[in-house]
Design a protein around this nucleic acid. Structure first.
Lengths: 149, 149
DNA sequence: ACTTGACTTCGAGTGCACTCGAACCAGGAC
DNA sequence: GTCCTGGTTCGAGTGCACTCGAAGTCAAGT
């Protein structure tokens, strides 16, 4: 048993947060440097001491990132939150805009997935028989043959 | 009315394909350079002459890209297709693997979207009343106050 | 003949989001 | 007291997917 990184009352170490969130310590420091955090505390020896609130915030950041929000925009949001009450409408507008983008993205991805499923099914049915892309290649060859070259 | 780029029988010009696909001419050339295409023909003056088959292939590439398949993997797939019949199982495996990733990604995005919707609803309800993030900030401040500093 | 504009190739540049390395420090185990 | 572990800051490097610029060609319009 090695040294206990942080007592729980003093907050979580960067390694613990890394493990819980799936981010690396490098990324956590990068997020902080880049202004995405709300102000991470330090313990006596200058090490980061994350609170449970920080964990929740990181979860939000992760959701926003993973749905495609750029770092720049998350930083804007974090700035608004740090600025405190008074800009809720603006925060709401930002979140709504992102939500709308994610909805659209979700639909588009679903449509693409459908097309891919269709192609998979076609291939699966065709394995050992005929090849869907063979058509394309044949078409290419016909085109090549007919081309002025 | 400016010069007619290509007669239709000779194939589509890069500008026409760019317009139809939403990609830029730069990107189309880049895809070809990078081995993503199945062999684009040229006309008498060395200009690219895309076939309808190429259009279909570009649509597929776009679907794969937009669902997160890396260029590298699309190149592998294109290579297999160019190699012709005999590797259908492998192509199928590649597509299935991608499909599975997309399905997972779709579910994850849907989950994140739910969380974001929830947050939007919370904000919308709270505007003018209480602020959800205020809690977090308050928590931060309590933590900061309690921190060893 | 000359200009125009869309194309060609080649190589370099950009933006984003990490990701890593170097050099240093603090606290605990032995 | 020295070693190890795990942190710190700062700045540079990486990988990906474009994106752009330069210099040249070609065909058509005036």
């Amino acid at each position: 048993m090695t040294t206990q990184p942080q007592t729980h009352s003093n907050g979580l170490s960067i390694a613990e947060v890394a493990e819980r969130t799936g981010l690396t310590a490098h990324t956590l420091r990068y997020y902080e440097r880049d202004g995405l955090m709300l102000g991470v505390g330090r313990n006596g020896s200058g090490h980061r001491a994350y609170t449970e609130g920080d964990l929740g915030w990181i979860t939000l950041i992760t959701r926003l990132r993973s749905t495609g929000m750029p770092i720049r925009e998350i930083r804007r949001y974090a700035e608004m939150v740090r600025d405190g009450a008074g800009n809720e409408e603006e925060r709401l507008a930002l979140l709504r805009a992102h939500r709308d983008r994610v909805r659209a993205q979700l639909e588009e991805t679903a449509a693409h997935l459908d097309a891919i499923e269709f192609k998979v099914a076609y291939y699966a049915a065709a394995v050992g028989e005929t090849d869907p892309d063979a058509e394309l290649i044949a078409q290419q060859r016909r085109a090549d043959a007919a081309a002025p070259r």
